[in-house]
Design a protein around this nucleic acid. Sequence first.
DNA 1: TTAAAACATCGTAATATTGCAATATAACAA
DNA 2: TTGTTATATTGCAATATTACGATGTTTTAA
Lengths: 107, 107
Amino acid sequence: MGTTKSEGFSEEVNELAVLFKAMGHPARIAIIQFLRTQEKCICTDLVNELPLAQPTISQHLKELKNAGIIQGSVSGTSICYCLNLDKISELDAFLASLKYDQNPTCC
Amino acid sequence: MGTTKSEGFSEEVNELAVLFKAMGHPARIAIIQFLRTQEKCICTDLVNELPLAQPTISQHLKELKNAGIIQGSVSGTSICYCLNLDKISELDAFLASLKYDQNPTCC
DNA sequence: TTAAAACATCGTAATATTGCAATATAACAA
DNA sequence: TTGTTATATTGCAATATTACGATGTTTTAA
């Protein structure tokens, strides 16, 4: 155990879980927030911005990238990371659907 | 380590991370989806619905409850769990904000 | 070529998560 | 009371995550 069981759940459910999980860490939320507001999305800035060491930040960036939530393109010595709004929209759509189909007789 | 570092991040960031983390598991997404569609939100139904043992489901329900994403009220021998739409809206608002403030010069 | 800057990767210790069997609890029915 | 049903808790083994120092890699500048 310690392993998440994914068999028996739909593809959609598993994909949503991966995306939510990727966002389930303060550093990764902070990275996403920072990317939203910066002109240039460079890891060095993040090192100055977050209370974490560079390797740790690099690791979090990788996880966000693996989940498809951010994309990075090399730009000289630095890397330009930015949000993938498609993935954000997937999560958003799921959450929005919860608000409308809610059964009124429950609770 | 293994411990998530929360000092140095804003309250808002930490709270969002907790909520996203709570949703970052297929069983918990499936529970939320199931709650949305059922008339009666009872754990027994979940045991028949999910590919997990009863104690495991109970544990996931507890985590969702701790995060404030669902609420449970006792109803005789069974328990009626339902979604807390306020929390869903918090996440939704965060995701929606990402879609609009995006910097166009990046990537 | 050499050095510096910006990231990534590796290795590893500490801790967290997951899943479940066994067991407990709580409410109702007979 | 006794049994049954519904759910929670405990305990634990297996695995995952987190954080970071040390060390690579790649790019640019001198």
